[in-house]
Design a protein around this nucleic acid. Sequence first.
DNA 1: AGTTTGACTGAAAACGATTGCAAATGATTC
DNA 2: GAATCATTTGCAATCGTTTTCAGTCAAACT
Lengths: 348, 348
Amino acid sequence: MIHLEEVAKLAQVSLSTASRALSKPELVAKETRKRVLEAARKLGYEPNQAARSLRQRSSRTLGLIITDILNPFHATLAKGVQDAAEKHNYTVFLFNTDEEPEKERRALNTLRGHLPKGLILVPTSKAQENLQLVGNLPILELDRSSGTPGVHSIMVDNLGGSKTAVQHLIALGHRRIGMIVGRMDISTAVERFQGYCEALKEAGLPYQEDLVLHGNHREMGGRIAAHALLSRPPETRPTALFVGNNEMTVGAVLSANELGLRIPRDLSIVGFDDSRWARTMSPALTVVAQPDYDLGFLACETLLGFLARGSPQTTNLRLATTFLVRESTAPPGGLVNGLVLSERRINI
Amino acid sequence: MIHLEEVAKLAQVSLSTASRALSKPELVAKETRKRVLEAARKLGYEPNQAARSLRQRSSRTLGLIITDILNPFHATLAKGVQDAAEKHNYTVFLFNTDEEPEKERRALNTLRGHLPKGLILVPTSKAQENLQLVGNLPILELDRSSGTPGVHSIMVDNLGGSKTAVQHLIALGHRRIGMIVGRMDISTAVERFQGYCEALKEAGLPYQEDLVLHGNHREMGGRIAAHALLSRPPETRPTALFVGNNEMTVGAVLSANELGLRIPRDLSIVGFDDSRWARTMSPALTVVAQPDYDLGFLACETLLGFLARGSPQTTNLRLATTFLVRESTAPPGGLVNGLVLSERRINI
DNA sequence: AGTTTGACTGAAAACGATTGCAAATGATTC
DNA sequence: GAATCATTTGCAATCGTTTTCAGTCAAACT
């Protein structure tokens, strides 16, 4: 490894001048700076981040903790964050918690040792407690809120998105609308559930507890819940289903297929979060789409902006969802006049 | 932040003893060690990795560079690597190159400054050149080979997997079998193409250049290539298609749908790499499945094993693929006697 | 008893950058 | 022409660990 000292020697300046030439350009004469830069380039110098971090007591890195890298939604969030970070010459430490608070705790501890400048995370249910570990590190919560005071956050309008989805089903004539909700210790699940309730209420429909089941946010959870709902006799079986996240939606659709229910004739389905799977499955799925990439990108930009400007107050953003009507929703009993609904966008 | 010095003070030992108690337990008296551990726990001490890395001239981190985090195959690789790394208390720096050599170069430079102990990467086409940057860092190439001498590698048996797939199509009676190949500057594409050629040759079928098109490994590439192949008149149109990776397969299927070709009646399709999409689409896709998670996990284990044991020679592993026959392949012209092929596994 | 051995421990020197301070230089002001 | 100022530079301290080296002490030999 080439050290700064060798660069300094080649450029005929002192170590300190070389350092300044690279990281505090305005403090050094133009000519000198050029010499140093040239020398660094020629030697292929790359600063030792460990030394730099040690001295500055902080490193040009961000921590990123997501709960499921195999979920395309989260992978996209991660890509958004990374792209933004790279743009600002930040490096990202990525951790995956599999929704397990214990893994989150370990990730936070490890991260702490690396002196990141900030942290972006999709919190698990125990995040409020776990976040005590990292002291006063600037934190931004992504996609969900853990309720920890003083942290920035950027989420989507879960309530509004859900409400629109359920209103759509109601408008089609559905009256027994089931919902598969996520875990109620996670904010998105609660908000989406609220949207469902509000839509029912405003339409004057009763809330029926037995139409709402919970899943663990993964495919199998959706499958089990859907199976329980859909294997009821036709009179009590819901004619439409609103599912609280992308993975559970897959499970719900598979379950409907297994039971021989035709979508949308026997069952309308709306999912939360778009995906290629939703777009290309047959019939294409009606969904509440989230701006996943933007969510990640903006999260990073927001946090870095805060770090740069150091404004005192916390930022809390909500991005709008987009409701995409495709082919998985129709009036109860099937298509009217063989009408095929083409995809159209409704901004909400 | 708590420093080791404060831990030492609380445990009534010197700084050096405290350090040894934590990282070289065998050099310290049992009693002393217990005191130090207790003090560290009580204070919530977490070692400053920057200081440690600086002193040791190396950090307990690994670099991981993949080419497309949005591709579930790569996301799964990453998860495998991360899980294995975590098991050994290593932290992973993840970079994404989008298949762009320039991004790869930047990632390598950044990584260099962080003094990782090793590097796992899915190489881009310019990796051999880019890898010069990192000197003699232990490197493992994952999924593909860049041809760089002296690096470890772990890949799947692309040739064998492809060959089996094409043999399956031939056995079904297909004679005009098209292939959508990836970029020939990437080893997996070349090997899969070879498998295709070998299968044809061994069956005594001629190689027809016009049945082979190239795509850029992404959905759109597959779609364009498939469109070109499938919009030919029935006499020259291939009756079966073998597609070289998961994303392009999606494109190919969509293209077939657009052209009104029914799968498998009008067209049999086999993809390389399984995915949920392949499993749940209708009809379910026949694929050459790769052990994606294991590939990543083993990659990490292999590299760490090498680091620990420091054995001199390089490891080059090949994992077997699994051929999964589902519903997207049938004799040309459609199902025989309405036979529905159920999913079965063939280990090769 | 004296020497050797071994197990522990502590003082101090690294690791490679950044940065506060002071000195040198040249330009500007009075 | 002296004093002041701004610009540019170098010296040396510093960040928090690990690790070398030397030293202490008790046990185990001869």
